[in-house]
Write a protein that binds this DNA or RNA. Structure first.
Lengths: 134, 134
DNA sequence: ACAAGTATGCACCTTTTGGTAAGTGCCTAG
DNA sequence: CTAGGCACTTACCAAAAGGTGCATACTTGT
């Protein structure tokens, strides 16, 4: 709650990524990744089909794709029991858990400022319905 | 560093946004927003042209657009001195500062795990050059 | 035999996002 | 009088992200 600039560990002069924040955001950007991380961090549903139903609006293609990326990024571990019918489940790796922990302040911020954010996004939606001609 | 699931304040049953994390990410998603936030949080360049040059690869259109969104989201304050030639500068609002603070753990995480993340992204780039036929 | 469930894969399309290039109005330097 | 900087704006495009729907191979339930 202080008003001084936080001592971010960002360094835009780093190679590849402009800063640590940039790297992190690239890893979690994906429409459903936060939710996936959320469910896995809660020890919630872990089987593919369960996740699929828990998230509801996601399509198979995208859910699979995002799980694969999270796996490739070393945040999620995929376990294929090689049974038939197929059984696969997903869980966070140690790295995934540490990321989930780093996300806590963002969750908190979002929750605390949800009202403001929601209001603005509602207006944005209104604009797109056309207008702003004058 | 604990291994238990962090007590995220996410609640996917909330209206509009699936959780606080979702709201936050929507507000900071934009190719250059993290950098903008970074510079402003550092008390770095604040005038439009300075930001423009500091970021280098960004185009006018997108930089302006992202600044506008950040402003609409209440994170950034735009000050137009109504001088001629034009002089405008940007700074973080209290809300922006609080967000920047919440981002610190993400910066740290990204910096600490940059090696792993970079490796994976390098491989992703390799894949896209074609392959994975066998 | 047939529908349903399991975890995906693939082709195709739409939406969103970002980028390019040019133009605006006004002022100062040469 | 032209060039350039300032802070944008606009029209047009390309790439990325996400969504839809069908297909697979096998099993269980009816």
């Amino acid at each position: 709650m202080s008003t001084e600039p936080p001592a971010t560990t960002c360094d835009p002069t780093l190679p590849g990524f402009t800063c640590g924040l940039d790297a992190t955001l690239r890893v979690i950007s994906g429409k459903w990744k936060p939710l996936i991380l959320y469910f896995l961090a809660q020890g919630g549903p872990t089987r593919y089909g369960e996740l699929r139903r828990a998230i509801r609006d996601v399509s198979d293609k995208v859910l699979i794709q995002q799980l694969k990326e999270l796996e490739a990024d070393g945040l999620v571990k995929r376990t294929d029991y090689k049974e038939v019918p197929p059984r696969v489940d997903y869980s966070l790796t140690a790295l995934g858990v540490s990321l989930a922990e780093a996300l806590v302040p963002l969750c908190t911020w979002g929750t605390e400022n949800m009202a403001a954010v929601t209001r603005v996004f509602a207006e944005r939606a209104t604009w797109s319905r056309k207008g702003a001609t004058a």
